[in-house]
Amino acid sequence: MKIGLFIPCYIDQFYPQVGIASLQLLEKMGCKVFFPLDQTCCGQPMANSGFAHLTETCNTLFIDHFKDVDYIVCPSGSCTLHIKEHLIDDGRPALADRVRHQVFELSEFFTDILKVEKLDAFFPYKVGFHSSCHGQRGLGVSSMSERMLPYFSKPESLLQKVKGIQLSTPNRSDECCGFGGTFCVFEEAVSVKMGKDRVMEHEANDVDYITAVDMSCLMHLEGILKRKGSKIKTIHLAEILNSK
């Protein structure tokens, strides 16, 4: 099974440790991982801002880089969702369609494809789980509070396999953090207020870390936590699953 590792641009530039943890985890689970060095961005920042027409080259590059793997795995629900929903290539529609179906967010890849049952991970901290919207409501990595359907959570089921961890859920279990791509700057006031409210609920649970399947939510929450001088840190799910 050949895995293409898709590392979103902002993780590449600002959070390399998330890429490293993802790679190491996949390798530990026996996957042959291939990292296309020329990858840049899925195009989501432009598309979500109304500029999907500017993502043509991003789409072409993405398909070129990942067309020869069995699965594409990405430590971001949001970027995964973008590829799944919006990757198009007028010249190669069938190929684009195949790629769209091959892309997986990391936690769903672990639970659905690798069917991970045991993890050799140790993380002796109190961790608040932030449910990232695009992973949850977009990809369906967990049940949603609005829907009257049975409860499940792929990322939380993985976290529960980590030794020493104490998981907590905020009062509003799946409210958006307010990042929202360029929303975070063009709707700065609402974005920050939403983030502050998320942080407050995790503070009430007295957590050491906030984790999520999306680093973008965490980048936003981290910015607010740091400005506040909070002792709470943010950490990507892959880093916890890769902790010893």
Binding site: F14, Y15, P16, C184, E188
Partner: peptide, 21 residues
Amino acid sequence: NPWYKQREMPEPPKQSFNEWY
């Protein structure tokens, strides 16, 4: 920078993932 108004910027690492790889 509207990001910085109420949030800190992420700390830039020495190496990108690409460079590390």
